[in-house]
Amino acid sequence: MSQRGFRTAKRRYHYLFWPLMGVYTVLVFATSFLVDTNTAPTWLKITSALAVTLPLFGVLYAMRRQTEETDEYTRMRQLQAMRDGGLITAACAFLVGFLQIFEVLDVISVFWFGPLFFITYGLSFCTQNFGKVV
């Protein structure tokens, strides 16, 4: 683990996060206009899916790197939030999976588990000190 300090870690995270999110946004719009899911060939669909996903892999790397480089208390809070996000997402995946097996639910796109993780991660991080003076 290579701790660099809170400020350096934050700066390095933002330098990587925002350009990647910019690329991601452009690719989402571009592929949604260019790829017609009814007529596009499979190779184009796969390429588009990979192209859109690659910046997200970069964001995940930035999160991992920041967790390693930031100060110890921030790291602890982030890991706790990731734990909460991961566990809630896993629980929801199991629940939805069994509801589908028992044919209570129709097919739900797996895509939504990604945003669910990030939302629960963010909420957990923000509410750790809820009601306390920080």
Partner: peptide, 26 residues
């Protein structure tokens, strides 16, 4: 103080209030 130690302000608050014990290096 957080800037001098290169940690977050929340870290200082957590240490001061006894909510978090710093590592030996800190």
């Amino acid at each position: 103080l957080a800037e001098k130690l290169d940690v977050s302000r929340q870290s200082i608050n957590a240490i001061e209030t006894g909510k978090y014990d710093p590592s030996l290096p800190l």
